[in-house]
């Protein structure tokens, strides 16, 4: 009896998923309000890689192995005169599961010269030699950024936030 009930419920769950995918609403860009986003961002600002020193802040979640993030970073450096004098760019390293980039991110966070390491991995032609990082502090930063990203609803890379609002 139990076996039969389980059998039906299995199909019912499958049907539910199929139906829910049919009526799926478009992916929400931002799960929380801009005010809360700004507050959360403040908690991870110290862990960001900072480019430029302009009056306006821009926060970008990137994955070092994401091609689009790499293109975006390249563009930022290409237009550095126009951008870095007017904006302060905060780069947050946030892994995309498909890219399996945790090792790269930990290496960058752990590095003494984060920006150089970031550029080596994302913009360099040669593959960078990576170390196995077992530092708790580094892992903590990685997790902290991931948690904030999840709460905000960071669903793609690069994910850009200005004044608490996501693109």
């Amino acid at each position: 009896m139990n076996k039969t009930t389980f059998g039906y419920s299995k199909y019912a769950i499958l049907l539910f998923f199929c139906m829910s995918s049919l009526f799926a609403i478009p992916q929400t860009k931002q799960l929380i309000s801009p005010e809360l986003t700004t507050k959360l961002i403040e908690t991870i600002k110290d862990d960001a890689i900072i480019l430029g020193s302009g009056g306006k802040e821009i926060h970008i979640f990137i994955d070092p192995l994401c091609k689009m993030s790499q293109r975006y970073l390249k563009l930022l450096y290409k237009r550095n005169n126009a951008i870095f004098s007017e904006y302060t760019v905060y780069l947050y390293l946030n892994e995309l599961k498909a890219k399996k980039s945790k090792k790269h991110i930990l290496n960058i966070i752990h590095s003494e010269s984060k920006e150089k390491m970031l550029c080596d991995i994302m913009l360099g032609n040669q593959s960078t030699i990576l170390q196995k990082i077992r530092n708790k502090e580094t892992e903590k930063i990685f997790q902290k950024i991931s948690t904030v990203a999840k709460r905000i609803g960071v669903y793609k890379r690069p994910y850009i936030i200005i004044n608490g609002k996501a693109k």
Partner: peptide
């Protein structure tokens, strides 16, 4: 950015537009 949403000038996020204009050198 939002192909499904009807375009209205009032709904444009000026911060992003300004940044994009600067980033892509069209400003």
């Amino acid at each position: 950015y939002d192909p499904a949403v009807e375009f209205k000038v009032e709904n444009i996020n000026m911060d992003f537009i300004l940044f994009d204009f600067k980033l892509y050198g069209i400003y």
